[in-house]
């Protein structure tokens, strides 16, 4: 598979159809991989793909980052099914046009939940939980796919979130608050959850705005709660569930539980699943003139 990808990548670069290919390369040790930017055809041998390729690379396509750059023909990207959902969502939100990106889709059987759990193969003990529920092991929309792309039935009924969300929902409010207070006590607001998110696309984040100061900047209880709740709310109906925020958290806080819960709410209320349509706008960033509620008037 990887040879087909490298060959395609080389062709794209040689024919100047893309200016760069964003993919995965070997990381700093054998358990890790790293994002890589390939610009020369002879560098394509650095490209790899296996279950250690956890990162959601579409974050680099978000307008806050430098890809695609002005004057570029196209940005190539190696994308798992879940990454393509993120790209699709970026397109739906006008962060990107489909023509600006060349998607090299990869079939993916799942990735590890954390690099430290990699023992040479993927198994039930180290696979990320998001992969168990995944319906895009075979990518949906891509410009290139190594080999034959099988037909996939994606009509399975919507499944509610991970058991932890349900467990938390089962607690009374005080207990749930205690849980989060304990977790958030470790948060120091490094904003890894924000920076790693493909969908956090504001040029100036609301937490960095000081006039007015919407969110206390210090990492005390109030400031931390305000940040994480704001983050979750801003991603309602937009989060594609890549779980990068939780993986990136250096303090090991499971911040995507909020996003998972809100994903359920959006599904129940609007029947909307993010990342499957370039045209359908997320329900909370659009409105309809024939909306049954009158708040908009």
């Amino acid at each position: 598979m990887i040879e087909a990808i490298r060959t395609q990548a080389r062709n794209l670069l040689e024919n100047k159809e893309v200016d760069v290919i964003i993919g995965y390369a070997e990381g700093s040790d054998s358990t890790r991989t790293t994002p890589v930017f390939i610009r020369k055809p002879e560098e394509v041998s650095r490209l790899i793909f296996d279950p250690r390729c956890i990162n959601s690379l579409p974050l680099y396509l978000n307008k806050r980052h430098e890809y695609p750059q002005k004057g570029w023909k196209r940005t190539g990207i190696i994308a798992k099914g879940c990454d393509i959902r993120a790209i699709t969502q970026l397109i739906a939100e006008n962060q990107l046009t489909r023509e600006e990106v060349y998607i090299i889709g990869v079939p993916c059987d799942g990735v590890v939940s954390h690099f430290s759990k990699w023992d040479g193969r993927l198994h039930d003990g180290n696979q990320a939980t998001k992969c168990a529920e995944c319906d895009v092991h075979t990518p949906t929309d891509c410009d290139f796919f190594p080999g034959e792309r099988p037909e996939v039935d994606r009509s399975a009924p919507y499944k509610v979130s991970a058991p932890q969300v349900l467990n938390l929902m089962g607690l009374n409010t005080d207990k749930r608050f205690d849980y989060w207070r304990q977790e958030f006590d470790r948060c120091f607001k490094c904003y890894a959850c924000r920076e790693v998110c493909p969908h956090c696309s504001c040029n100036i984040c609301i937490t960095d705005r000081t006039q007015p100061n919407w969110v206390d900047q210090a990492a005390h209880t109030k400031g931390v709660f305000a940040w994480h709740i704001t983050r979750a709310m801003h991603l309602v109906g937009r989060c594609t569930g890549c779980g990068e925020c939780t993986r990136a958290c250096p303090m090991d806080i499971q911040v995507d539980l909020f996003n998972q819960r809100l994903k359920d709410v959006v599904q129940e209320s609007f029947g909307y699943k993010s990342g499957y349509s370039q045209d359908e706008k997320p329900p909370l960033i659009t409105y309809k003139t024939d909306d049954s509620e009158d708040f908009i008037q």
Partner: peptide, 13 residues
């Protein structure tokens, strides 16, 4: 440094 995403994890840790 091209791949750096600008979070503060390294500095805070």
């Amino acid at each position: 440094g091209e791949k750096c995403i600008g979070c503060g994890a390294c500095t805070f840790m």
